[in-house]
Computed example of a mutant assay.
Amino acid sequence: MSDYLDPSAPDPLDEAFTAAWLTDQEFPAVEYVVPGVIPEGLTLLTAAPKIGKSWMVLGLGVAAATGGHAFGRIRVDRRPVLYLALEDGPRRLQSRLRTIGITEGPRDLTFMTTTPAGAAVTIETFLERNGDRKPLVVLDTLGKVRGVYSGNDAYQKDYGQMSALKDLVDAHPGSSLIIVHHTKKAETTDFLDSVSGTQGLAGAADSILVLRRSRHDTSAVLNVTSRDAAEGEYAVTFNGNTGTWSLDGVNLEAAAQAVEENRATEGVGDEMAEVVKIVSRYPEGVRPKDLETLLHMKPDTLRSYLRRATEAGRIANPKRGLYAPATTATTATFTDVHLPNVAEVADVAPRHLEVIR
């Protein structure tokens, strides 16, 4: 086989490295736009039309540009932000800023409603000019720059588009690109399957956020899966009067617990819901006597609720006289998350700017 190799060509294994070398390395921690939720790299944020995803990324942009609090709770580092609001105009953007309480625009927040030079070139230019400050770019929405594909090569074209955008942020360690996209109309069991388009879009992203909210409900669930952030689902609330999204709880762990509580109490009466919520706050388990005190409920009534909740799978009865949450919120890996400030070194992949115009 070696007889056919060009002796002047580089060795195909020049870029190989051993496991021994790899385990000796010390890499910087991952940079986070929102600690525990949005790490550096390419993030795909998807939701159904008109449920508030543009409000969400506007709030995230303002928080990042000012070093404020994302979702009203999570402190974030200050960085330059470019918001490509390709479905809006200056008048609407000004109105939205005023709605969320911004009367004096942050100097580190820049808007564009069109990209005459093309989306890829525009994003690349902003990242290059601000690369030393770990910039953030928001592209709202992908549909404004994405081609319409069908046929056998649709996956490859979707993957190629996203890879081209990912190459731009990978070339500037610590930088981030959030792309807003729509979910499918059909309901899906796995939230990743809800991303509109082929799986090539999700496959090329570093992180995927799926926002789910009923049209006339203020409560929503934000599903997160990522190569770097902890996977989980968090309860968030949208205030239509102020245009703001807030975490349902004092931190991510509380917001994850709120999802479990809401799921366990869905479709039940107030008293049963209160029993389930109180039990859900004691992962180590709680005894009926303690619940009587906490709930101010008669023993017979409480026993009836506990039996019915256990039979319905809303709470667990791990041993006699002890009740516990039916499931555990997805927060176990939070301790593995490296909070911000140092960017992870990444190799620069070849760019294909012609894929997206």
Results as ranks from 00 to 15, higher is better:
A264C: 11
S226M: 11
G68N: 14
I208W: 03
E15M: 13
G203E: 09
D3Y: 05
T18Y: 11
S150H: 12
R78H: 09
A186Y: 12
P135G: 04
D140T: 06
T103R: 08
E354T: 08
L192P: 06
M112K: 13
L168C: 06
R96E: 11
E271D: 15
R78P: 03
R307S: 14
R308G: 06
F126D: 00
G203V: 05
V279D: 01
A343L: 10
V250W: 09
A329C: 12
D193E: 13
L127W: 01
T43Q: 08
D190R: 15
A316E: 06
S8Q: 15
A202R: 07
V348F: 03
D153Y: 04
V121K: 07
G101Y: 05
L165N: 01
E124S: 11
G203K: 11
L192R: 04
Q199C: 08
Q161W: 02
D108H: 03
S95M: 10
E284R: 04
A329M: 06
S226P: 07
G174W: 04
G89I: 00
L247K: 03
T43L: 15
G321A: 09
T141W: 00
P80W: 01
G36W: 04
K184D: 12
I178T: 01
A120W: 01
T225D: 08
V62M: 08
L142T: 02
E260K: 09
L97R: 01
R78D: 13
R146E: 08
F334M: 11
D153Q: 12
L306I: 09
G89E: 07
F71G: 01
G101T: 02
V30I: 12
Q199D: 07
T103Q: 08
E284V: 07
I179M: 14
D206Q: 11
Y159N: 13
A254K: 12
V81R: 01
E311F: 04
R320S: 13
R73L: 06
D217A: 05
V57T: 14
K50D: 09
L42W: 01
A154E: 07
T46F: 09
T125C: 14
G143V: 08
A16N: 07
F334C: 07
L294A: 09
T99H: 12
L177E: 02
D228T: 10
A235P: 03
G68D: 12
E292L: 08
L22P: 15
T188N: 14
S176G: 11
R73P: 06
V169I: 06
Y149R: 04
R213C: 10
V169M: 08
R79D: 03
D167Y: 02
W55V: 03
A20K: 15
V30R: 03
P116T: 03
H172L: 09
L109T: 00
A63R: 00
A171Q: 15
L165I: 13
K157R: 12
I178D: 00
A329H: 05
T122H: 07
A326W: 01
T327V: 11
T141M: 07
L165D: 00
G41S: 11
